[in-house]
Amino acid sequence: MSDRLSVAKTYKLYIGGAFPRSESGRSYVVRDSKGGFLANAAQGSRKDVREAVVAARKAFGGWSGATAYNRGQVLYRVAELLEGRREQFIAETAASEGIATKKAQSTVDAAIDRWVWYAGWTDKIATVLGASNPVAGPYFSFSVPEPTGVVGVLAPQASSLLGLVSVVAPVIATGNTAVVITSQDRPLPAITLSEVLATSDVPGGVVNIVTGRTAELAPWLASHADVNALDLAGAPESMRAELEGAAADTVKRVLRARATEPDWTAQPDMSRLRAFVESKTVWHPMGV
């Protein structure tokens, strides 16, 4: 054992590309699966959620307007950086989730690969979901998928890294920006991921990460009028109906969660990409 005392990390929120503490000044203890102290995490408040939505909205124009090629490169860069910090994520995931190192390794590897999978989708989605519409008239009509806007994401509670990546990457791959409320009890990999995002090429505000009590924060996200869609992946089952109901006030798109958290190691399909895009149909006459 080294006799040098290690420098402990302070875990903060990630909003608009910066790492603020909660405006509430609150923090909470994050423990490992055996109940040992891991760290203090910022306990975000509704005002932090509000700030995160503002940041996400501000970032939306630029991110949705970026070329799909550029978004693909940015997502791929995240995978690169994650790979570089693989060991750190394995350790944190193992600690957070109480899994063996070997399983943590495969989980982190899957998370890295997931970024690569979604990075490759950015410039395919319009081809696959878009269409040229053969309308019965002298018009050129085409449909393209466009990002829905600001998506509120309740990250999975159990799978602190792979689950998180599996829900955030598809949201931003199509050009949305995200406000993520992390796993309440396992927030540390998310915060470390935010450090990766901050040093990658993901523009500030595209992903905003708030740690804290899900039950406290989720209703504010669900009812926020400037949030366009809601991913209930990590919503407590008892709250899902209430959150979906709150989302109805501004006709948000809601991606519901299955009763139990899915196996995130399974190969994803397009459904999460489809969930947060809008089809836009454009018509123009054809004439001389």
Binding site: N133, P134, A136, Y139, S141, S143, S279, K280, T281, W283
Partner: peptide, 15 residues
């Protein structure tokens, strides 16, 4: 739906 130089066009093939 965005109609350019036309308006209120509908077709079953067009979402």
């Amino acid at each position: 739906v965005v109609w350019a130089n036309t308006f209120n066009r509908f077709d079953p093939t067009a979402p």
